[in-house]
């Protein structure tokens, strides 16, 4: 059963262009995704495509001027703002993207201990530091004294000690060496296997393929395809959306075929299918309206031409 469901989520901002005109910037449009118990769902897309805002929307920490529509459910119940405040940090934990997410003036041990919501905080912190090969003296350090990799492991520790059932990991691995990446991914896998769930947000499709169960392909603020990880193989024949196929073939080991054009700017999205301007299969119909997500075999896809 789905622990976390996001339905038709849209996030936009109002912004001044020049002078007094305001434009609406659509950063996320009609996005739907859900995470099952015991599952790792990876959301894969280019950097700067608004993926981090999805995490913020789920946790209810979007900037004040964000305009949000659509629904988010946790454990089958609607995640209202009061519930978000009650649950985030307890049931849903975040592994943030930036190492600047640690308070520069607080010792890191204390930052991990304040993330522990029940039980012996000191013991939990010591245990998790041991698990991530952080020396005992690290807990007395300030963030500026840590290397990038250590800071990254401290961030993952905060989520692991929180006792949450869902972890939203926003680019948790950059800056880590290969062994630590493998280890961090292994810990996420173990976490998911203990009847919890992980929403992994990343631009690194290869890491995602290693541990995820399903992959949601993210393009210009929305999901274009959600498919089980086994579909990502060969020449991409089992992928249904033209962008997913192109993304797959753009990987070095699959031919390194570049995708022509660039992602549309959120101020100026095309009226219909967001990928249509770059799509070889695009027809007049594609420009009319944003296609809905529809089920197709073992996944779902947002393309009228996919069969």
């Amino acid at each position: 059963m789905a622990i976390l469901e996001v339905e038709n989520l849209s996030v936009s901002f109002k912004r001044y262009t020049r002078g007094f005109k305001q434009v609406k910037s659509n950063v996320i449009s009609s996005l739907s995704v859900e995470v099952e118990e015991g599952e790792i769902m990876a959301i894969v897309g280019a950097s700067g495509s608004g993926k981090s805002l999805l995490a913020q929307a789920i946790l209810g920490i979007l900037p004040r001027n964000a305009i949000v529509s659509g629904g988010i459910k946790y454990g089958g119940e609607v995640l209202t703002p009061p519930r978000q405040r009650a649950l985030c940090g307890r049931e849903i934990a975040l592994v943030p993207q930036s190492v600047n997410s640690l308070d520069p003036l607080m010792r890191v041990g204390e930052q991990v201990r304040t993330s522990v919501k029940s039980g012996n905080a000191a013991a939990a912190q010591k245990e998790v530091f041991e698990r991530y090969h952080l020396d005992a003296n690290v807990e007395k350090m300030y963030p500026f004294q840590l290397s990038g990799g250590m800071a990254r492991r401290v961030l993952i520790s905060t989520a692991m000690v929180s006792g949450a059932r869902v972890i939203i990991a926003d680019e948790p691995t950059p800056g880590l060496d290969e062994r630590s990446v493998a280890e961090a991914l292994k810990h996420l896998r173990e976490f998911a296997d203990s009847r919890c769930a992980v929403l992994l947000i990343t631009h690194d499709i290869e890491s995602a393929l290693k541990i995820a169960d399903r992959i949601a392909v993210f393009y210009a603020g929305t999901t274009v395809e959600i498919s089980p990880v086994e579909n990502f193989r060969g020449n991409g024949e089992e992928l249904w959306h033209p962008f997913s196929k192109a993304l797959w073939r753009a990987l070095p080991q699959n031919g390194f075929v570049p995708i022509p054009g660039s992602q549309p700017h959120p101020d100026d999205l095309p009226s219909g299918c967001l990928f249509a301007p770059r799509c070889g299969m695009a027809s007049a119909e594609c420009g009319e309206a944003l296609p809905d997500m529809r089920k197709l075999r073992n996944g779902s896809v947002r393309c009228i031409h996919a069969t």
């Binding site: 920490i61 985030c88 934990a93 975040l94 997410s101 304040t114």
Partner: peptide
């Protein structure tokens, strides 16, 4: 932002 994500 991260502190708020942890429910503070």
């Amino acid at each position: 932002l991260f502190a708020r994500a942890r429910g503070e």
